[in-house]
Design a protein around this nucleic acid. Structure first.
Length: 152
DNA sequence: GCCAACGTTGGC
DNA sequence: GCCAACGTTGGC
């Protein structure tokens, strides 16, 4: 089973919102690399829920894939901010997934902590200028972040 | 608000 | 196909 990291700006959707909703739809991804990761995510895969553009930014919890990739309807909606005039219903360009809340970490793991941890060298989100909203995470990195988030 | 990183667009 | 301009992300 693969591990992932998904980013959300807590001002628009935070881990507390996911805890309240139980499941939500992850849509609006308009980057091909991130989309390809979405397509690779399998039912039950776990993902770190990362708060971006936050004070501070960091890993707030864990979610799991509740439904695998299916066409993102916002690409066909002219009124949507995610509208893509070049996307055809017969050949959808963008997908979304559904995710389910698994746990809110008792200790919020800040980006500074991630960067300071020797075991997390090479993790994508720690890279300077990392902008991908969906990334793959190694099993070892995933376990390490969980350990940090569960201890205090 | 600034700026670095980097994906996308469009002229040629 | 090259590359400059531009837009977006996201840390600080």
């Amino acid at each position: 089973m693969a591990c992932w990291l998904v980013k959300s700006e807590p001002e628009s959707y935070a881990i507390a919102d996911l805890a309240r909703d139980g499941t939500t739809t992850w849509e609006g991804v308009r980057n091909y690399q991130a989309r390809n990761f979405l397509k690779a995510m399998k039912l039950g895969d776990r993902a770190l829920f990362y708060h971006s553009n936050a004070t501070p930014s960091g890993v707030a919890g864990v979610c799991e894939v509740a439904r695998e990739a299916y066409p993102d309807p916002t690409q066909f909606d002219p009124d949507s901010a995610y509208h893509d005039a070049d996307a055809k219903p017969a050949d959808p360009r963008w997908v979304r997934i559904d995710v389910r809340h698994v746990e809110t970490l008792p200790h919020f793991v800040t980006l500074a902590e991630l960067k300071a941890d020797a075991a997390l060298v090479g993790m994508e989100v720690v890279r300077k200028g990392s902008r991908l909203s969906v990334t793959a995470v190694s099993d070892a990195h995933f376990a390490r972040v969980l350990a940090l988030g569960r201890s205090d």
